[in-house]
Amino acid sequence: MTSKERILNKCAKAADGAFAMPELDDIAAVEYPDPLKQFCATSEAVGGKVVELADNQDINELVRSLFPEARRIASNLTEISIADTNPDLVENACELNGTDLGIIRGEFGVAENGCIWIPQTMKQRAVCFISENLVILLPRQNIVNNMHEAYKRISFNDYGYGTFISGPSKTADIAQVLVMGAQAARSVTVILI
C-alpha cells in the first residue's frame, strides 16, 4: 500500500462525517459608508502611501515626480513609458535585482485591510517583490469592503499565481521593533486611477 492510500484509509476511518459545513453567507461582515476612504486610511496604517491621479494628469509624470531618483524602472504596462525593463522580456528573474521601481496593476482593493489583489500578469512575477519600491495602479472604483467580497471576486489566469499585497514588506523580528523593507519592496505607493 502506498503512503497516500494508507493516509487516506486512516483518515476515512477517523473522519466520521459528524459536522455539516456551516452557512457562511449569513456572516454580518463589516461594510463602510465610504469604502475608498476606508481603503486609503487602512493602506496608510499598514505603511503604504496612496496618491490620486488627477484628471488629465500624465501617469508617467506623476510617477517620475514621486520617484525622481529612480534609475531602473521595470513594468510591462503599456501606459508606462518611463520603464527601461520589461518583466515579460527578462529571461532570468534574477536580472530584475537592482530594480529601483516596479510598476504593476492591481485589480481591486479591500477596505478593511488595505489588501490589493495582484494576479500575475507578467512573465517574471519577481518584479512585484524584488523591486526596492513598488507602485500599484488601482482603479478607484474597484474597492470592496471585506475579504468575503474579495474572495468572491478573485480570478486566475494561466500563470496560476496571485497575491494580496497590503503595504510594504515589514518585520518586527529584531526586538519587536517594526521595520519597513524586510525581504521585498521597501515602499508601496498605490496610485488611484
Partner: peptide
C-alpha cells in the same frame, strides 16, 4: 475568507499580513 480575516488579527494584531499569496 474567514480564516484570512482572523489569522493575523489574532496573531499579531494586524488587519492582514502584508502578503497573502496563492500558488
Amino acid at each position: 475568507a474567514v480564516f484570512q480575516r482572523m489569522l493575523c488579527r489574532a496573531g499579531t494584531g494586524q488587519p492582514s499580513t502584508t502578503y497573502t499569496s496563492h500558488f
